[in-house]
Amino acid sequence: MKKSYCLLAVSLLVFSVFTLSSCRADIKWTKYENNPVLGGADLGTCFDIAMLQEDGKYKMWFSWRPKKSLAYTESKDGINWSEPTIVLAPNPDSGWENEINRPSVIKRDGVYHLWYTGQVWYNDWSKSGSWIGYATSTDGIHFERKSDKPVLVPEKGWEKEHAVMCPNVEWDADAKLFTMWYSGGEIYEPNAIGYATSPDGLVWTKYKNNPIFSCDKNTEWEHHKVAGGHVFKHNDWYLMFYIGYENEHLARIGIARSKDGITNWERLPTNPIISPTPDGWDAEACYKPFVIYDAKEKKWRLWYNGRTGNLERIGLVFLDGADLGFPKH
């Protein structure tokens, strides 16, 4: 019996050493020293972005709360941004988009495709709602709605018949389908992440086993909710950079990965990667990451919303090298 215990202890020690060495606990994301890079001053709250890297510059579509609209700005370095231009304003007559926000933008065959969140708020939150709409543009600035009605609505139990939001859309060239990861649940902060597919961007089929990603009840920093994932294919994995909520008001950012983007999500052992800075501009929450990897520079850039009080602004974080810190399989 003593021999068995000794063998077990040695095995656990070897496993622990292997895990610590293989998951690169020394990897550290570094916040830009002059954050935030957008918002505040005359712009007010700027949050929940989508980006493309084209023509030697970064193109950003962001949620502009004072205007209740989506706006566009661009930058050569990801730090200094041009004067914003509104690209899609709300349509109160629609009955579901008194304000719009949370864009997802991809470019395919010369056309910019935009999915966005439309919201209606009431003093009674149980009557408020959130839906997802779709628009296109040939220049990325002048968008035309493809439907007066939302293309994705809250109807499933886990969506609480209340809110779907935060679309994150990619084009799957092999399957010839648009693929969407979206958040659903309560309207103030959604609860989990679901998956849907569409051949045309208008008609969507939700995955039968949604949600595909839910909070880890045994992990304090994200035991309350998860939402706002940025999902994309990188090498042999789908990566998800997501928001984890310790409670309704305290949020951090973590990473998970999956071979198919739907099942068997593996969280980074050293999560969270980004947390609020005490007494900083992001002292209360870090939300909604958007990530771009520069293969030439071998550098990750991550933009996110930081919040203190009711003000949200956009900040930037860097990671040098390609290694995110996952264990080697």
Score class of each variant (00 low, 15 high):
V169G: 03
K107G: 03
K160C: 09
V164H: 00
S126H: 14
E170T: 12
L152E: 00
V151R: 01
W131D: 06
N98D: 06
R108I: 13
Y122D: 13
N91Y: 14
L114R: 02
K146H: 07
D148W: 05
D174E: 10
G157V: 08
S126T: 12
W171D: 01
D109K: 11
G118H: 01
K146S: 06
W171N: 03
G184H: 03
S128D: 15
D172E: 10
H142T: 14
A135L: 05
V105C: 03
P150F: 02
N98Y: 15
P90V: 11
V151L: 10
C166T: 09
T117D: 08
E99M: 15
L114S: 01
W96Y: 05
P154C: 09
S147H: 10
V111E: 08
K176F: 05
S137R: 10
H162N: 15
G140S: 14
C166E: 13
R145D: 01
G140H: 04
N101W: 06
A163T: 04
M180P: 00
P103W: 02
G118W: 00
Y134V: 01
E97Y: 03
W125C: 10
N91S: 07
K146W: 06
D139H: 14
K176Y: 14
W96I: 04
D148Y: 04
W131F: 05
V111T: 13
P90K: 08
F178V: 04
D124H: 12
W131M: 10
G157P: 10
P103G: 04
V169I: 12
V151N: 09
G110V: 09
S147N: 10
W158Q: 02
V164S: 04
